[in-house]
Write a protein that binds this DNA or RNA. Structure first.
Lengths: 224, 224
DNA sequence: TCGGGTATTTTTGAATGCAAAATGATCGCC
DNA sequence: GGCGATCATTTTGCATTCAAAAATACCCGA
């Protein structure tokens, strides 16, 4: 058996995996409207792959909930059902709560540094695109601080399911400012390792974000 | 556009989906030991399908966490890491808690009937196989009573990840009896729609089950 | 006999090909 | 002119095929 093995990167990413990521990005960017047929042949052209890896990617994304597979009738972009969005936020609330409880106890100094850093960057990037991305990273960093990879992955999957909607909300300066205030409160609890408070503030922040998203979906004004 | 469409079943299950389910069953039954290579050709023979649908199934099961895909080096059965199992139960605890909070409020009379029924059946089927299955169904029914399909699906995915281990624990009569007692306590809270109590008892039951599973994994005796 | 390197076999990843189903268009009928 | 049925086209699902990579076997030299 060979010896030098651990350092060689397993980065020989297969074509199907690249396709999964590319297609997911396309879907997250909302390039294909909800419920529309997925143009298999067209995407093959676009990504420069044959149908086999593309179809494998479709299966995976269907398992992730981005796509609906209708046997013999093609795949469609999973429509965003406001009811479903509410359900995602409801579940996410339970996980945010758990994140608060665990992160307060388990966060390493490195975790603290990272989170503080992202938090600072958020303050200086109020434009919607950067804000959405950094906000995502902020919450992801907190999730990571639980040191529970299963939780992180599940949390990530849920986030992805509502990510397409986020940029809409984050275009509203009022909500962005409010959101940042909530982040400040979260940071206070996090720095103090106040687990119950951190849990509550994360859950509350999630609830308010969910409500803002749903209001936008319903076409209501965002001002609360 | 045609009119009679809603009643025709979408049950024309595609070959790849059947394969996903069959292969998942094989994995859940522990027929392939952890870390072992997945004999692609052999499984094609067994399921009577070609490599295309089988490989699609592998991708899906990899996304579900049952399988590890190593580019150009074949797929292996995802090894059960005790640390990971602990993480699954930790996250599941948060969700069980949420299930308790929501199910107590939202369960319909039908939900109550169903859950009572499964609970009764559990009492009369102490053999490991039935018990594992009914136990699964009991918790699934409670999850369903939240009427949050996103939660149900996420919960299901987590359950699947530890399901292979369950039958081991459920072969221990002591733990089975204890588990049933916990179910009784859960039912008392559920019937009374005592949401905080139901949440706590579900979370506690989850914690105890997790500990029993981990003890078994470590080869310790099950008696607490 | 052992080690290293090369050749062979096996296995994997992806493209192509083919049959069946669905979609859409044309035509006939009322 | 509107409606339905039949036929052509497109799209989908799966099998097969081909090339490349890995695993294995083999050979040769020390």
């Amino acid at each position: 058996m060979s010896l030098a093995r651990q350092d060689e990167e397993p980065e020989a990413v297969s074509l199907h995996e690249q396709t999964v990521n590319k297609l997911r990005t396309v879907l997250l960017n909302g390039e294909l409207s909800d419920g529309s047929r997925i143009p298999e042949a067209q995407l093959c052209l676009r990504f420069g792959v044959s149908r086999t890896p593309l179809r494998e990617a479709l299966k995976v994304l269907a398992a992730e909930g981005f796509i609906e597979l209708r046997p013999n009738r093609g795949s469609i972009v999973a429509p965003i059902d406001p009811v479903d969005v509410a359900h995602v936020f409801e579940l996410k609330g339970a996980i945010e709560n758990q994140i608060g409880l665990l992160a307060a106890l388990r966060a390493t100094p490195q975790d603290h540094d990272r989170i503080e850093q992202v938090h600072r960057e958020l303050a200086t990037h109020p434009d919607p695109t950067s804000y959405t991305e950094l906000n995502q990273e902020f919450h992801r960093a907190l999730a990571t601080a639980t040191h529970n990879p299963v939780l992180v992955q599940t949390y990530d999957n849920l986030q992805k399911r509502v990510l397409r909607l986020r940029f809409v909300v984050n275009e509203n300066p009022v909500r962005v400012a409010q959101s940042f205030d909530e982040h400040e409160a979260i940071m206070v609890a996090f720095r103090a390792r106040a687990r119950l408070d951190l849990a509550e503030r994360l859950a509350e922040h999630n609830r308010l974000t969910g409500e803002a998203v749903l209001r936008t979906l319903r076409g209501e004004d965002l001002a609360p």
